[in-house]
């Protein structure tokens, strides 16, 4: 009996907590959008953030995406041979997978773990060292000062990163299929032309921008809620990485589902 109550209590509390968290998050999203259109536009800060988010993440993203592309093409070849006893379609399929899913998602997950975690740690540290209170005392709106530049930079940055990642990924896939799997470049390009349309690239960029919208907001949300002490910062960082990753995967599914009706 008592155990039943305890379970009920636990469930009720978690539901209430997550409800509160979600409403606070929505409030943050609304506020950031409102603040985003308020002058002054802090261009220098935004460019600095763009450098941190996009330029500094580029090497690591390219590195990972190259390996991911190689694996994708090897695995596609394996599956194609298994099902239709013929792997002539492999380049086209691999390219399609890369463009539709891999490029955007892998980029976004890597950015989450690097930039998202970084933002959460930074904002959390600002919160526990009372820098955010100090901002408010000096009459600065923290959302305008902290969230907006990161948000704008991240949306632009991820859109660009996604394009670059996709192109590099395709190029690596091309190299692997030619050198290791023995396709001629003509075959590869025929496959590309047959399976890939320009809209796939557009969808991919839209995906990247959406992920770029989510990452800084989630990180700032958990940063603002950060509890004091070393433990608080670590926890805020962890939570923001997990929440962003899950949201990215769910969002990816929703977008893929919606886009599947356009192709």
């Amino acid at each position: 009996m008592i155990k039943g109550y305890a379970v009920l209590d636990f469930v009720g509390k978690s539901v209430m907590d997550s409800y509160q968290g979600v409403t606070q998050f929505i409030q943050l999203v609304v506020d950031s959008l409102a603040e985003g259109f308020r002058p002054p536009l802090r261009i220098r800060e935004t460019v600095q953030q763009l450098y941190f988010i996009a330029v500094q993440s580029l090497p690591i993203i390219l590195f990972c995406v190259c390996f991911a592309a190689m694996v994708t093409i090897l695995e596609s070849s394996f599956h194609m041979k298994l099902v239709i006893q013929n792997d002539s379609m492999v380049p086209g399929f691999a390219a399609m997978l890369i463009l539709r899913e891999l490029g955007a998602v892998v980029t976004a997950l890597l950015v989450t773990s690097r930039v998202g975690a970084g933002i959460a740690a930074e904002v959390g540290t600002m919160k526990i060292t009372e820098q955010i209170d100090a901002l408010r005392m000096l009459g600065i709106r923290p959302i305008h000062y902290i969230v907006v530049p990161r948000l704008i930079a991240s949306v632009i940055g991820l859109a660009i990163l996604t394009i670059i990642a996709n192109l590099v990924c395709l190029f690596v896939a091309f190299l692997v299929s030619e050198i290791y799997l023995g396709f001629t470049s003509g075959l590869f390009i025929t496959g590309l032309v047959r399976f890939i349309h320009f809209q796939d690239l557009v969808f991919s960029i839209i995906k990247g921008a959406c992920f770029g919208f989510v990452i800084p907001l989630v990180s700032c949300h958990f940063g603002f809620l950060c509890a004091s002490g070393a433990e608080g910062v670590g926890l805020a960082t962890t939570r923001s990485v997990v929440a962003s990753s899950v949201i990215i995967i769910i969002l990816d599914f929703v977008l893929s589902f919606v886009f599947s009706f356009f192709s």
Partner: peptide, 18 residues
């Protein structure tokens, strides 16, 4: 904001922007 311009607060921690 107007009130906070009148009141200056010195925090427990220095809270300088690093």
């Amino acid at each position: 904001l107007g009130i906070r311009k009148k009141c200056g607060m010195v925090f427990q921690q220095p809270a300088l922007f690093d």
